[in-house]
Design a protein around this nucleic acid. Structure first.
Lengths: 341, 341
DNA sequence: ATGAAAGCGCTAACAG
DNA sequence: CTGTTAGCGCTTTCAT
C-alpha cells in the first residue's frame, strides 16, 4: 500500500497535477478554481488519505517547517523545561522541533550543528558551547535564521535571548551580605562560557559594593562535564579546606547545586545552621528538599517564548536587525539562608 | 552562496553525476572506479564543502536516518533521561531523533503521530497514550518500524519494551508490609493506561498474599494531566480523610510523588514518623530530599538501549517476530519508611 | 570503468 | 479557470 500522491488524485479527479496542488495548498480561491472542483479534490484527498510528501516539498521549496534546537543536556531541569516550552510555542506556529544534546562535547557539538544544517532546518535555537563559534559564524554568513539562548558570543552579531547573569549574581550576593554573610564561597564551573564569567563578575561587584575583601581562595572552579559522582567528590574536595571559615556558598548552576547538596550532606554540614546556601536555577529538589533552597530563578517560559518568536520573525524575514533580549531573574526566598547578626 | 551539489563536483572533476554519486556514497571500490578518480572526487567534495541534500536523498531512497520519539513530557525526569539515552544510542548508529511531547493530550497525540509519519521517519519509539491506538494500529498495518515503550496495548501485536509493573508494585507493597505496615494508601492516577492498571494489580496481590484486607478507600485515583499546583491540592484533599488512620503511602509515579511530598509538607505530616512513603521512579528530589525516599527505580538506560536496538533491527529488517521485552526494576532502600513493630 | 537518462513528488512559471 | 512543462538533487538501471 503506497502513499497516495498528488498524481493519484489528479488521475481520479480527471484534472491536472497543478490543479490538485493548488487546491491542497489552500490557494484555490485566489487561483479561481471552481468551487465544485475544489470540493471534489478535497474530498478525494481525504478519502484517499493524502498527505504531501515532505521530501518532495522540501526539495522544491527549501522549507521544512522544522527548527533545530541544541542544548547541553535535554535531561537537565533547565533545558528540559526550556525544550518543552519551545516545542509548545513552535507547535502553535506550525513548526516542529528537532532536539539535540551537545553534551558539552566539543566534537559532538560541531557534528550536531553540521547535521542539522544538512537536514535543512528552517532555523536554529542554540545554547552554544565555545567550540561552536566557527560553525555558528559560518551559519550567520550563510544567512541561516538563528537565535542563541542562555549565552552568546561577545563579538558576534546575532540574535540572542539571555538573562542578566551579572545582575542576577549580584543580587544573590547582595542578599547574602544583607543577611550578615561575609565570607561567601562562589562555587562555579571552570569554563570560559560567558554566562559563567558574568556570574563571577556579579559576585565580584557585590563584594566590592559592600566593601568586602576579594579572596581568591573563596572562588572554587570545578571542571566542566563531570559525571554526577565525580562532581560530588570534587565539590567535597574543594569545600574541605574552607569549610570551617565560611558563612555561605553560592552555587552558580543547577547541576552544581544538586551535587553540592549531596556533598554537603556527605560532609555533614548543615544548611543553614553551619552554612547558608543559595543556588542559580530552580527545580523540584530546591523547591521541596530540606531545607527549601533560596534560589535565583530563571524565567524559563519567557526565554523560550522570546526565542521562538524571534526566530520565526527571522525566518519570515520580518526582522531588520539583530535582537538582543535580556530578561530579568527573580530571587526566591526560602529557607537555606540564615541571618547572622 | 548556494550549497554545492553533486553536479558542481561532477562539472569540476570532468566526470558524470553517476561517478560522483558512487564515490561519495563509498561504493567506489565495488564499482571499480579508478583510485585516482576516487581521490580526486573526494578531495573536491571536501574542498567544495559538499554535503548531500537530504531531501533529494530522501525523495529518492525513502530513507531519512531519523527516528521519531513521542513521550508524555520531555521535561519530566523519567522521559527526559530516557530521551537523552535514546538520542545517544541512536546517534551511535547513525540516526538522529525527533522528539515530541504528547502532553497526554488526546488530540495532540494523534496529530503528532500523523506529523511524524508525514515527515517519514524511518521508525518510531512511542510511549503511547490510549487515544493513539487507532493511529498506531494503522502504522503497524502499513509496516512502519515501531516500538512501544513504558506501556503497550494488550491486544496489539507489536514490539514493546517495558518494566514488570505488577511485580515492581508488588515488591514495593511487600517491602512495606514486611516493615510492619498494614494500612497502605495507593496514590495513583485515574487512567486506563496499562502500566497504572498493573501497578494497581501488584498492590492488590501484595495485600492478598499477606492476608491484608482490601479497602476501596485506600486507593486514591487522581485525574491525569493536572498542573502541579492543582495536583498538590487534589492530593491534599484525598489524604485528609484518611490521614490519621494510615501507615504508609505508595505513590505510583514521579509526578505524583513530587507533588505528594509537597502535599504532605503542607499538611505537616512527617515522613516517616507519621507516615511511611515509597515512590515509583527515582529523581534528584527523592535521592537527596529530606528524608531520602525509598523508591522503585526503573532501569532507564536499559529501557532506552533496548528500544533503540529493537527498532533499528526492525528498520534493517533483521527481525522476524515481535519482541516483548520486560525489564526488572530495583527497590532502592533509603529513609522514608520506618519499621513498625 | 564510466556515462546518459529516467524518475522520486511537488511547485511555479508560463501558456492557453 | 486549468493544463503543460521544467526542474529541485539524487540514485539507479542500462548502455557503452
Amino acid at each position: 500500500m503506497k502513499k497516495t500522491s498528488i498524481k493519484d488524485i489528479a488521475l481520479r479527479a480527471g484534472v491536472s497535477l497543478t490543479t490538485v496542488s493548488i487546491v491542497v495548498n489552500g490557494r484555490a480561491k485566489q487561483m479561481n478554481i471552481s468551487e465544485s472542483m475544489t470540493l471534489k479534490i478535497l474530498d478525494l484527498a481525504k478519502e484517499m488519505n493524502y498527505t504531501p510528501n515532505q521530501f518532495a516539498k522540501g526539495l522544491r521549496t527549501g522549507k521544512t517547517n522544522t527548527i533545530g534546537l541544541i542544548v547541553d543536556d535535554i535531561s537537565n531541569y533547565f533545558f528540559g523545561n526550556l525544550a518543552k516550552i519551545i516545542e509548545e510555542e513552535a507547535d502553535k506556529l506550525g513548526y516542529t522541533v528537532m532536539f539535540c544534546s551537545s553534551e558539552n562535547d566539543e566534537g559532538k557539538s560541531r557534528n550536531l550543528l553540521n547535521m542539522l544544517v544538512d537536514k535543512q532546518m528552517d532555523g536554529y535555537i542554540i545554547a552554544p558551547t565555545l567550540s561552536m563559534l566557527p560553525e555558528i559564524s559560518k551559519m550567520i554568513k550563510m544567512n541561516k535564521p538563528l537565535v542563541l539562548i542562555d549565552r552568546f558570543y561577545e563579538h558576534l552579531e546575532t540574535n540572542y535571548v539571555i538573562i542578566d547573569n551579572a545582575n542576577a549574581s549580584f543580587e544573590g550576593v547582595e542578599y547574602l551580605i544583607k543577611k550578615g554573610h561575609k565570607r561567601i564561597v562562589l562555587l562555579t564551573n571552570d569554563t570560559e562560557q560567558l554566562q559563567m564569567q558574568q556570574r563571577l563578575e556579579g559576585y565580584k561587584k557585590g563584594l566590592e559594593q559592600y566593601n568586602l575583601p576579594w579572596e581568591e581562595s573563596l572562588v572554587k572552579k570545578i571542571p566542566f562535564g563531570m559525571s554526577k559522582s565525580k562532581l560530588v567528590k570534587e565539590i567535597k574536595k574543594n569545600l574541605k579546606d574552607v569549610e570551617a571559615k565560611i558563612d555561605a556558598i553560592f552555587f552558580t548552576s543547577n547541576n552544581l547545586g544538586i551535587s553540592g547538596l549531596e556533598a554537603l550532606r556527605d560532609l555533614d554540614i548543615k544548611i543553614p545552621e553551619d552554612v547558608s546556601v543559595i543556588c542559580f536555577d530552580d527545580n523540584d529538589l530546591f523547591r521541596l528538599g530540606m531545607p527549601r533552597m533560596t534560589v535565583i530563578s530563571q524565567p524559563i517560559k519567557a526565554l523560550a517564548k522570546k526565542a521562538v518568536k524571534t526566530l520565526i520573525k527571522q525566518i519570515n524575514q520580518e526582522q531588520n536587525k539583530e535582537e538582543h533580549i535580556v530578561l530579568p531573574t527573580s530571587l526566591i526566598e526560602r529557607a537555606s539562608v540564615r541571618t547572622i547578626s
